[in-house]
Every structure is written in C-alpha cells, then in structure tokens.
Design a protein around this nucleic acid. Structure first.
Length: 382
RNA sequence: CCGGGAGAAGCUAAAUGGUUAGGCAGAGGACUGUAAAUCCUCGAUUAGUAGGUUCGACUCCUACCUCCCGGACCA
C-alpha cells in the first residue's frame, strides 16, 4: 500500500480528521505510528461502537498503524459506570468487555490477536509521570472549557456533577500524551476533548508529543455517530432546521434498550428493532434507516446490492450506490418495508460470527455475569 | 459542623389528615404493506428509610439517609 492508499483507507467514512497534514507526513515517513481509542467500561457495545468505531480501528490496522484499545476503567469510575464500583469495572474490563471488543473485530474480518489492550489503572500505576502531564493539561485549560467538553459523558447541561468528573477531560488528554499516541480516534462526540488535547499539546513538557524525534500534535480522527432508529423529538421537522444535523444528534444510547442494537442480539430482536424504526415513505431528509444503509451497508457492498421482493411489490430492484437508493426511495420506487427487510436480513447475517462467539459457554458465562451485575445495580438504585 | 429547603413510577406533577389526578415516556391492540400520526386498553398493594401521633398519614411529629442552597472553619 502506498501513502495515498493508506491515507484513503484511514480517511474513509470519517466525519473529520483534525491534522491531516501531520497524518500525511507520518505516513510518508514510513515510521511506526501509534493509535489509541479509549473505551469506557460499560455494558455491551452497541453497534455504533462495535461496527462504526471498530471498523475504523480495523481500517487503521490494515493501513499499518499500531492500534491500542484503552480500557478506561478509572474514567468509567468517574462516570459512575457499574454503580461507580471500581472493582466490578476492572473485572468486566478484563473479562466480558475485552471479549466483546475482540468479537467485534472478528466480525469485521480482523484478527483479534493483533489488538493491544491497555488498562488505565495499570498504566497509571506504572507511569507516575502521567500525573504531571495531567496537571500540565489542567493548568493550560480553562474551567469553562472543561465544563463544555464534559457533555460527552452523557450528562445534560446544568445537571450536577461532582468535582471528579472535571478531571475526566484532562485525564483523557494526558492519556494521549503519556502513551505517546500520534492518532487519537473517537466518535465525533469526542471532538471537544480532542481539541483541548491538541490545543494543549504545545504546552506539555513531561510527555511531549513526539513522532520519532520530531515534535508533533497528535491527530484526531472522528467517526460519525450511528443514529437511533427512533422518531425524532419533533416531527415534522421545521423548515429552518438541518435534518442531517438532527439525525446525527439522535445518537444511539445504550441506556435506552430500544434505541440500541447489539451484535449479539438474536435474529428476532434485530428484526424487531429494525421494524420499529422510524421510516417515512419517500422521506430522505430524516431517515435513520437509510442512514444505516449509508453507514453500514454501502461501505461493505461497494458494487451495490439488490433487494428481492415479491412480484406484487415490484420484484427485484438493485442499487449501485447510496445516491441511487436515496433517489429511488424518494420517488417511491422502494418502500420502507423493502429496505427494512433487507437491512434486518443483512445485519442478522453480518453479526452471525459475534452471535456464535457468545454462544460458546465460556463467553456466554462472561456476558451473563455482566448482565447479572447490571441487573443488580439497576435493582439497587431503585 | 451550623442553618434553610427538597425527596411520590423511567421522568414530571396535582390533591385543607379521608384512602395517590394528569402529562411525557413505556407495553398491548386497531388502522396503515414498516415506523410515525390518530383511536382504544394497561401501568405505583404505594410515597427516601425506620418509628410515632391518629378511627384514618403522601400530608403532622422524631431519628436517620441522600441531594440542593447558604454560612462557619481556613490551621
């Protein structure tokens, strides 16, 4: 693969890349590039993470980048995951959660053995100078900025937060510096923190961001968020609102079981969730189902695909690319049921490896154990 | 630590001490070749916890817990 091919692989299906010049420079140098993406330890990964985010991890692997999956156990504690129980968080991080990440990459056709995991708590224990970097980031960022960046933790604005949660953004930035990362990956919701990271990069002295002897700001790669299939909060959407923007805002939430889909969902559950999806006939402005085609199906079916329907509903119809699907949908040549049926079948087939992986007793046990813990925490908090 | 306020379903919210309205979300059904919209149906053996007063407590009292707001302490 030449530089251009590697760059294109890294860039495809991203929302944005901050620092493309640096990225190009690094690729041209031929030197090893360190990537990282942090995961909070929560329950199962919804497919926005397992498919969209992990596909980018695989792209980076394929482009010859050294990828690292950062298990952010301390961050999860700060963000009250698993009832804020750090011991449970650590256990899940080493068990079910890591296994889910491996299964994701397996499903996407990658080699789980090539993934490098780093657990935050272990990293901090062996790298005490992390904390000086943490202070340096903190010292060079304003309080309002930290507060603004904190919405990524899934909190509403104005909601009360403890002081510890303010440590989260500088920690995340310091993680990147301390581990000598050149590419920080995340969903577009991570943007504010990554910008803080890049803005403070020049001020850092202890773990100066370097690339083979040259000072360099880490690059940020952001993937789009897979929208929830639920109907928008307001419908019909007023003329002056940007439908696409709204669609991205309605991201999937794990806490809402109906808005989130998981790779290990059984076929009936997948089908049901797709069928429940909001999908207006001929509406292409706000249509999460079509957006899923754009984000999941077309990147994998580069030469297009066809939908086989009963004769009374039009018979076989094929699409060469997303625009083609959109225009046919807008004209009413394709019905919501047609695309829903196809999408359900497609996802059921696509997630088969993950489903089978977690049917193996050892892994199933891990999942069950995690569900059990989550259930207990839920019961306790009521 | 002191003072003040609050705690009712997933969220929100009314009811002079008389046996928990309503709204949103959710579930089921009808109608659409999906979903949405609309229409029907359902949902707390129960009010932060534990006691007490009373014929009767969400409502009054006491203690404790949690959260919010002030103040004190500033070595």
């Amino acid at each position: 693969m030449n530089t251009e091919e590697r760059l294109n692989l890294i860039k495809r299906n991203t929302e944005e890349i901050i620092g493309e010049d640096e990225l190009r420079f690094m690729l041209e140098s031929g030197q090893e590039i360190n990537h990282y993406i942090g995961f909070e330890i929560s329950g199962k990964l919804h497919i926005g993470q397992a498919v969209i985010v992990m596909q980018k991890v695989k792209d980076l692997m394929d482009a010859g980048v050294k990828v690292h999956l950062f298990l952010a156990d301390w961050h999860s504690y700060l963000n009250d995951k698993f009832g804020g129980n750090l011991e449970i968080i650590k256990e899940i991080a080493d068990g079910a959660f890591k296994e889910i990440l491996k299964a994701s990459i397996l499903t996407l056709g990658g080699d789980p053995e090539k993934l490098t995991f780093i657990k935050a708590s272990e990293y901090y224990a062996t790298h005490p100078d992390f904390w000086l970097t943490f202070l340096e980031v903190s010292k060079n960022t304003s309080l309002p900025r930290i507060e603004r960046s904190i919405s990524i933790m899934g909190r509403e604005e104005g909601q009360t937060k403890d002081f510890g949660s303010l440590a989260y953004p500088p920690m995340q930035a310091a993680d990147i510096f301390a581990m000598n990362i050149q590419i920080a990956q995340g969903g577009i919701d991570q943007r504010k923190i990554h910008v803080i990271m890049r803005d403070t990069a020049d001020k850092i002295k202890t773990n100066m961001p370097m690339f083979h002897g040259k000072r360099m700001k880490p690059v940020a790669i952001h993937t789009p968020l897979l929208p929830s299939l639920a109907k928008p909060a307001i419908w019909p959407i007023p003329e002056d609102m940007n439908k696409r923007e709204l669609l991205n805002k309605g991201k999937m939430s794990k806490s809402d079981p109906n808005s989130a889909m998981f790779m290990m969902d059984d076929p009936e559950a997948i089908r049901k969730k797709i069928m429940k999806g909001f999908c207006m006939e001929k509406e292409i402005g706000y249509n999460p189902i079509l957006r899923w085609f754009e984000m999941i199906v077309f990147p994998r079916e580069k030469s297009g695909f066809k939908i086989v329907r009963p004769e009374e509903h039009g018979g076989i119809i094929s699409f060469k690319d997303f625009k083609d699907l959109e225009s046919k949908f807008e004209k009413g040549d394709v019905h919501p049921i047609d695309v829903k049926n196809f999408l359900a079948d497609y996802l059921i087939e696509m997630f088969k490896p993950a489903r089978e992986h977690f049917q193996k007793p050892a892994y199933k046990k891990m999942l069950d154990r995690m569900e059990e813990i989550l259930g207990k925490i839920k019961a306790k908090s009521h």
